[in-house]
Design a protein around this nucleic acid. Structure first.
Lengths: 192, 192
DNA sequence: TGTACATCAGTGAACGCGCGTTCACTGATGTAC
DNA sequence: TGTACATCAGTGAACGCGCGTTCACTGATGTAC
């Protein structure tokens, strides 16, 4: 992004971020050390701190990248009526390490400019998508909040293994679509 | 529970659990060590391990206690139509450390018998409450899942500080009720 | 084109610290007689 | 009621380990001349 991509000894920034993503996938957003990232990335143990300062710095970069990817995913799903809700859940499942960081601002520096810009872009896309779900009823704010809560809750429960369906290897997209349709189908819309 | 409550030097089990709850409140479900619990509880550094084995043992006990409290809260809310949804959110906010552990089975021993019994009791109460929300439409399973996802997502977003309303000190119960009413109000029910 | 120098990304040895674990122990409680 | 003994919850010193941090360094890249 901001900095040049090719450094002294390969692309350290990218290598450390990828190491962080795989570490988060295995052990959650705080179940690893900077030294472990260095080991995974094949660099000296001091390199991650040299680049990112500390764990919070790494997580801030992960969140920023995550919000960009997330906005892309939501934009691509614009056609389908329940598409953005399904896309939200798909993003969480397909990009779990990002998702586990993004919506927990206490993990990273919420005032980082690059991260804030990406988050605002994603928020705007999310609000636009939600507004289409229930055009007549309730306030925009409440509708957005309801759609967001539903998608977020479903995704969280699925990822945490709290749903029997996820432990039994069910199809996340199909189930998400069924739940979204049940909640947001309105008499004036075709139910199928 | 199973063991006698008064031990050699006071009630160590309770003291360690309370220390764990306050540590989770401050630093999340894994941001502390057994030695820190010992310090908080005012006991020797080896005592928590002596009682609970390891951190997973402590978290298993926290989850078991949490599911019992949670089932109590849901049962107490039975009258009000959106009461169980509101109670879910209230529980999350008022008993945050429990909530942060309970729905993340990878944090604790999911096969612990005491924990499993408490979790099943809570699950049964939750399913009964959800069934009342939307008696005619959709499968029971999908309705339960929708209500659960909505309440869980709203509570998670609120606790994580992802909602502007929570950072600005809004009233969580009022907002939760508005969202629940928007989603689950049906033509044949009074909307107010 | 060639040389000399400044920059700075990344290195690696060394540090002090908190961690989980081990293990011989202490001392209050409960039971036998 | 009183004494002797077994139990075992909880102690505290000692251990080896991985951590973040510091700091003098190395060596590739970019610029000046």
């Amino acid at each position: 992004m901001g900095k040049a991509e090719g450094y002294h000894h390969g692309n350290l920034r990218r290598a450390v971020l990828d190491a962080a993503l795989s570490a988060i996938e295995e052990s959650g957003p705080s179940g690893w050390s900077l030294r472990e990232l260095a080991r995974r990335a094949g660099v000296s143990h001091a390199a991650p701190a040299h680049h990112f300062g500390d764990k919070t710095g790494v997580l801030t970069a992960v969140a920023a990248e995550g919000f960009e990817l997330f906005a892309d995913c939501l934009e691509r799903s614009a056609g389908d009526p329940y598409g953005s809700g399904v896309a939200y859940v798909r993003f969480a499942v397909d990009h779990r390490p990002y998702f586990e960081v993004m919506f927990r601002p206490e993990l990273y520096r919420a005032d980082d400019p690059e991260m804030a810009a990406a988050r605002e872009r994603a928020g705007a896309v999310l609000a636009t998508s939600a507004r289409k779900l229930s055009p007549g009823e309730g306030s925009d704010r409440a509708t957005t909040l309801a759609a967001w809560s539903l998608a977020h809750g479903f995704a969280s429960l699925w990822l945490n293994g709290a749903l029997p369906e996820s432990r039994e290897g069910g199809d996340v997209e199909e189930l998400a679509r069924e739940v979204l349709r049940l909640v947001f189908a309105r008499p004036d819309q075709p139910s199928e």
